[in-house]
Every structure is written in C-alpha cells, then in structure tokens.
Simulated scan of single mutants.
Amino acid sequence: MIERAYREGSRLGLAVWTQDEAGPYPTRPYPGQSWAQQGQPKQQPHEYVRNGTAKLLTLFCPGSGELRARGVFRAPNAVLHPWLQQELTAILSQLAPPAPVTRANHAMWESWQQGLQARITLPAKLPTLRLLLVWDNLQGHLTPSLVLWLFSHGVMPLYTPLSGSWLNMAESIQRIIVRRALAGQYPQTPEQIIGALEATVTGWNQAPTPFHWGGKRYARRVRHRQRQHALGGSGACMRLSIRCRSTTLQKYLYRFRCQATH
C-alpha cells in the first residue's frame, strides 16, 4: 500500500508526504569528520554535561525533495499536532484546487485501505482526496480528533506496519540532516542542536534532491522472491534448492579441499 503510494501517487494526482520525529539528540560530542588539518584531528572531550535534548519534527515530500522541519525540545501531541496541521494547511493551499466530489470519491479513499487487517472507519461524507501522509503507527498519530481533521482536509494517513519504519522515507532524510548538522560537533545546549538542525534544513531546501522508491535494493528483493535454481542439462529450473545426499559426502569434499590447498 505504501509502496503503491510512492509509485502511483503522483500519477493519480495525489501529493505524497512523509512525517516523522527525529531524536532525541543529547548535548554530547558527536563522532564524525571535521575540517581539522590532516594529522591533527579535532579532539572531543570524553566527559560531557547532560544539559537536555532536542528533537526534529520533519515533513518530507519525496517527489520534490521539499523538507519542512522544526526543532523542538519535546514532541508531545500538544506540540506535534498543531505544527502538523499548520504545515499541512500550507501545503494544501499550494496544490491545485480540489476537483468536484464524484460517486467514485469514497471508493478512492477505501482503495488505500485494501489489505489492512484493521481499517480506519471513514466518515460517510468525505472531500476530494488530495494528499497521502505516510507516518509511523504511534498512539498519538491515531488520535481521533487529528484523524478526523485529516479526513476533513482531504488527507489520507497511511500507517507503516510494526517494524516497518523503513517504508517511511522521512527516516532517510533525517539521517542526512542529522549527519550534516551534528557530525564532528559538540553542542552544549539544546538551542545549539536546534539551530544546527534548522540551518541544515534551510540549506537542503535551497537545492532539494527528490527521492524515488525502488532502486537496487528493491530490485534485489524482487530477485530474492523470484529466485530459481537452474538445473544442468536443460533449461529447467526449480524454486527449492537440492538437498545434499548425505553429510558424509560434505565431510569428504571438505577434507579433499583442505588436502589440495596444503
């Protein structure tokens, strides 16, 4: 379902955004490269004072590479929900005007819940679907008031399954931003961490890089699912590997190879 959103969302005229909260990041030295002279690496203290932590709220559009982020000290629902509603309202205002509601509109919403064991109860009246939001399946993301707000604004939330955070592209952009902002640095206050993260986000948006789903990793997974074992003498193949006839043969072959090498 989420892979379908990445591949078909734009073709269906839907904006696709991903959301996540990165952190917390404590006030400590972070390993990484620095601009120190060769042979004179930058030294970091082995002891540090714990002055607090900072987090980064991120909202990322893989298709365009645009990143909306905000550094915070904590990310409870009282902080996350208003920020998310504000950012989504701004994003929706930049999209094309919604098309008139048709009879197939409700079926379009339901199509993004196919295959789910636990489905979200959709309201009887729904506006035109305009945006797909991919994010983690956290308790705060299931708040009824927030979910109803998303529905009323034409946003369909797509929750990643358990142990499926790798489906959220926001995880990738967060690693890039954090590595650029904090690698080799020693922030001593949460304000310094927030400043470094937000400055890096500003630099990213000056020349954003679009992400696309798939690539070599996806091709490897497809080959793994379709892998077949070729059989000699013809073009036949089998999906299950042939089991060795006996462990005695394996020991003999292993002993023969060892004697040949010596």
Rank of each mutant, 00 (worst) to 15 (best):
residue 63 G to H: 08
residue 177 I to R: 13
residue 233 G to L: 04
residue 117 Q to T: 01
residue 90 A to L: 11
residue 223 R to H: 09
residue 73 F to W: 08
residue 103 R to W: 13
residue 118 A to F: 05
residue 115 G to P: 00
residue 226 Q to W: 04
residue 165 S to M: 02
residue 235 G to Y: 09
residue 220 R to Y: 08
residue 102 T to L: 13
residue 32 G to P: 01
residue 216 K to P: 02
residue 257 R to Y: 04
residue 94 Q to E: 15
residue 246 S to V: 00
residue 72 V to Y: 14
residue 124 A to H: 12
residue 196 A to G: 00
residue 221 R to W: 09
residue 72 V to M: 14
residue 103 R to F: 06
residue 18 T to A: 15
residue 231 L to W: 08
residue 66 E to N: 07
residue 123 P to N: 15
residue 236 A to T: 12
residue 218 Y to R: 10
residue 171 E to V: 02
residue 204 W to F: 10
residue 176 I to M: 13
residue 233 G to E: 12
residue 197 L to M: 06
residue 226 Q to K: 03
residue 140 G to S: 12
residue 198 E to R: 02
residue 259 Q to Y: 00
residue 143 T to C: 10
residue 177 I to H: 14
residue 101 V to N: 09
residue 253 L to H: 12
residue 18 T to V: 06
residue 46 H to N: 03
residue 47 E to C: 06
residue 105 N to F: 00
residue 249 L to S: 10
residue 176 I to H: 15
residue 63 G to I: 01
residue 184 G to Y: 14
residue 148 L to I: 04
residue 31 P to M: 04
residue 88 L to V: 07
residue 40 Q to A: 05
residue 153 H to V: 06
residue 21 E to T: 13
residue 248 T to M: 04
residue 86 Q to S: 10
residue 78 A to C: 12
residue 155 V to Q: 08
residue 229 H to M: 01
residue 41 P to C: 02
residue 256 F to K: 14
residue 139 Q to H: 09
residue 16 V to D: 15
residue 65 G to Q: 04
residue 55 K to Y: 06
residue 252 Y to M: 12
residue 20 D to G: 06
